[in-house]
Nucleic acid binder design. Structure first.
Lengths: 335, 335
DNA sequence: CTGAAAGCGCTTACAG
DNA sequence: CTGAAAGCGCTTACAG
């Protein structure tokens, strides 16, 4: 009966309702649902019983108003349709969920202006932290948020901002290894496929790769496209293979472009991989492991990143954490 | 100076702070930031000025406490690493964002038990609605949430629950077309690849396809795997092609499995598509358009679904909306 | 262990 | 148009 009328009323039960029915104070109810608070087993039982009967659920948003720790976490993400971003978000939301955090997701576009707006919006949620997975928001916007008291965690942005937590990749080591891989494979005419507008993390890959390769005295041609999509990868491969100096090794700055490059090299130009051409990617997206690609690449430490994000929330991680991306040997690189 | 001290204080400015500095009441501040509220241009200007100086941002969570409409929306999603789910989430979060809604994301696993817990958790946020993108939460849990006053929107679950809003696909029409496609292609020995544990939406595809095919008097073999992954698609294709009656047409219940099937058919069994074998998928994930797959499939109406979700929030859409998935002709089906 | 009270940051009738 | 007041649903010192 009671439950039924409550339902049609449409209003969810509040702590007061529970207190009344259990014959205790609001405080007692609150304590029952707070870990480590002191309630006698007896009143606890009474509260639990009443709560059950009224289908009471603590209102997390109201709780967040008085209690710092249960405030939500904002995740700024873009390009969710791309495998790398989706996989990263998957890991991070799962980890946050395990840590009892609530995730608010803000889907910003690739556009820096839109991203700035979104980052600013973050302040409206009084989130305990904002996690930036997108390369889009420009550094000055991140700085502004920090100045306004936001705690910001930057994932895989190789820039270096003060008072901001960074979780990034040791691109220096990874790129040294990448160059060695091409050397050992016997490639002497290498191309790097990147994007014209570079996020800090793309820039880091590009610069270290270029640097280490130049130490080997090897020819490097750099091709830059408008985006980092599959189609751009195809486009790049086409231009490289009909160019004056078709490469014998191509490093795509991300796996998504590499997939496009592979399909074009094989289908349009009948190249055999890795015999005629070696290809290396970065990210280890799911498709890299598909037999149609079998792409040699570097694995983003997805789970480690997710764990680090969670630890950063409670300041349990160093403000500047560098993880390593390990090579994943598959079939597109001679070894 | 002022800004600086505020920053080091670490506390964000509240409406009271702004009111004090502007020399007006809290109400005036509130009204300034509420669309359509009545404030004189003069006080409005004073408030805006003070807000600017104090870097004031309305606390959305606190606002949600008193104002129904600005309560968040919960999105229950699973398998974010899979393209279909990621693409759908991308569209929906973008649409919600445009509609000024805040999205809380709950990443449930494939496991019905975990999904139930997550759905129940939803009640803790007093969300104005819960959008279920995952097939995982069982019907009785959905019903329970509705009974407790939650407004639930089911996306692409072909089940039929009372008092729940549904956005689904007209599988009947789609599957009739699918059968016609196979007929016209001259396939007479068809296989259907599905999953053992079927969500309502997989079940609908399977049943309508089976029904229409049987009307044609064609042999159909059904293969069911443990999951709907790329690897399962490979596995299915292997067993079908070494089986007693290798099919000349295969309908994969989703694109992801179809990709695995294509790679296996081409690489391991040297089948030419569509000459030796026709393949049809469902979802139109990004990879279906990649030249390595060029998969003929049915397109989920991603944007329409997202729009419908938003309209459902304000009850501007019918409680039961059926959208159509149109065939996308590519290279894996003779026409 | 427990309750009354103040506080978190907002909105919205209610009078004026 | 404007302000004082009550309310949204919680938590947390403070006394007892």
């Amino acid at each position: 009966m009671k439950a039924k009328s409550h339902i049609s009323g449409g209003h969810a039960a509040s702590a007061s309702d529970v207190a009344r029915r259990a014959g205790v104070s609001r405080s007692a109810v609150s304590r029952t649902f707070t870990d480590g608070a002191s309630v006698s087993p007896d009143t606890r039982a009474k509260v639990l019983r009443a709560a059950e009967e009224l289908h009471y659920h603590v209102n997390f948003l109201a709780r967040g108003l008085s209690k710092q720790e249960s405030r939500p976490v904002c995740i700024l993400v873009s390009n969710l349709h791309k495998p790398y971003h989706a996989q990263l978000l998957d890991h991070i939301t799962t980890a946050l969920q395990k840590a009892q955090r609530i995730s608010i997701i803000i889907n910003v576009g690739d556009d820096p202006a839109a991203a700035s707006g979104a980052l600013e919006q973050t302040l409206n949620y009084r989130a305990s932290a904002t996690i930036v997975l997108s390369g889009a928001p420009p550094a000055h916007m991140v700085r502004r948020c920090v100045e306004l008291g936001q705690s910001v965690i930057l994932v895989n942005r190789a820039d270096d901002l003060p008072d901001v937590r960074h979780i990034s990749i040791d691109y220096e080591t990874a790129m040294r290894t990448a160059v060695q891989m091409f050397m050992r494979a016997g490639c002497r005419n290498i191309a790097l496929v990147s994007r014209a507008v570079r996020t800090p993390s793309l820039l880091a890959r590009e610069e270290f790769f270029t640097q280490y390769l130049s130490e080997q005295g090897i020819t490097l041609q750099i091709w830059r496209g408008a985006s980092t999509t599959y189609e751009t990868g195809q486009h790049a491969m086409r231009e490289l293979l009909v160019g004056l100096h078709p490469p014998d090794g191509v490093f795509f700055i991300n796996d998504l472009m590499a997939c496009g490059g592979i399909d074009t090299a094989r289908r349009e130009f009948k190249r055999r991989l890795p015999e005629d051409l070696c290809i290396l990617g970065f990210d280890d997206i799911a498709q890299a492991a598909w037999s149609g690609y079998d792409l040699t690449t570097f694995a983003q430490p997805y789970s480690e990143i997710a764990d680090a994000v969670v630890q950063n929330l409670s300041n349990a991680a160093p403000a500047r954490l560098t993880l390593t991306a390990r090579p994943v040997w598959r079939g597109t690189m001679r070894s």
